[in-house]
Amino acid sequence: MEPNLLDRRLLVVTGKGGVGKSTVAAGLALVASQHGKRVLVVDVDAKGTIADRFEAGTIGFKPREVLPGISLMAMDTEASLAEYIRLNLKVPIIGRLGPLARALDFVATAAPGVREILTIGKICWEVRESIEGRADWDLVIVDAAATGHVVAQLGAADAIGELVAVGPVRGQTEWMSELLSDPAVTALNIVTTPEEMPVEETIDLVGRARAELKVPLGVVIVNRVLPELFTRDDEAMFETLADAPVLDQLASAVGPGVPAVMDAARLAVAMRRSRLEHLNRLRDEVDLPTLYLPYLFARSQGRRETAMVAHALAGEMGL
């Protein structure tokens, strides 16, 4: 287990699309806030999924506190650039930022890594502010890009450093690289489900992160783990109960719904079993501390679900 996960300053949460990355990021934020941390959650894709987890309405670039100790912000590269220029360059033509931003937006589209650096730059800036006690948070949690894109995003500081030989951006990337590679500060965490593609992408990302990034890896969080219904003895008993002679007795004692219940149990067992294979592969291939979150048989999304995830996370983290 990682006892000090919440003591870091930057937790990046990634994973294949659809595995529940945002839900886990929100759960982590809630756990951290319950343990006295003030947290900023950054929604990198700015699709509003994080806001939904807190039922917080629309979130913009400017952080907004949605629960005591939890602030949310949505990434906006253009706003990030404007902020950077305002803070770092004394540009006389500030009034013409509109067309300028468009021009730079164009460069960002064209040149590799510019958009990424504006994203990771803003994140690192918030982390540094927090470390130096100038921000309203102790911890920044990033609901990051999906596995396919996160390496480019986190590696942008180094990549730009290689491409751009001089200039303030070059100088800027150095402190960012330092923050991102410090294991006391940063951890890259991967969310997966016990299914083939998410597990494969997790294994792949761990390898790529180690080869291409200096960012320390944190934990793997396996989401939606189905419960084990039976022990081996119980499973034998289930087979006996589901077999014709006993099944008929059950149906006459309980009613015509018995086969449906048996079928549902079979489905649950088979689903669990086919997923187990992927869990085992994950365990074999990835040597990171792993947290398991149960499949939530709940009808709710939003705050209620976030609270349930936070509770499960806290249990897994030994808090």
Binding site: I85, L89, V91, I93, L100, A103, L104, V107, A111, V114, I160, L163, V164, A165, V166, G167, P168, V169, R170
Partner: peptide, 11 residues
Amino acid sequence: QVADRLIGSQF
């Protein structure tokens, strides 16, 4: 003027 200062003229 801005772009040079941001990312350098070589780039």
